[in-house]
């Protein structure tokens, strides 16, 4: 799905937990997520902390969209 969107010229960032799968399917900008059933959350945190964590991931993803890449890139911390 990522590739079809990128093919029309839109930059796309993949927030996902299983990075090897993302690399295999051909995502070019990848942000590793927290866990499979809650990629952008952590139920062990309180609501405020959890939202903070989610915000960090989304900010990282948005930042990835502003970075030129010429090959598949995993945006770690």
């Amino acid at each position: 799905m990522l590739k079809e969107i990128e093919r029309v010229g839109l930059p796309i960032v993949h927030i996902c937990t299983v990075v090897p799968i993302s690399l295999t399917v051909g995502a070019n900008r990848i942000v590793p997520a927290i866990a499979i059933p809650h990629p952008l959350g952590d139920p062990s945190l309180n609501a405020e902390e959890e939202k903070g964590l989610r915000r960090k991931l989304v900010e990282k993803a948005l930042n990835a969209l502003t970075v030129e890449v010429d090959e598949q890139t995993v945006f770690e911390d």
């Binding site: 799905m1 079809e4 969107i5 029309v8 839109l10 927030i15 937990t17 990629p39 952008l40 993803a61």
Partner: peptide
């Protein structure tokens, strides 16, 4: 299909999430 719609709607960038 929806890539064309995103383009037509003037979207600039996309976040995709996967579980």
């Amino acid at each position: 299909e929806y890539a064309q719609e995103l383009l037509a709607d003037g979207v600039d960038g996309v976040i995709m999430t996967s579980t």
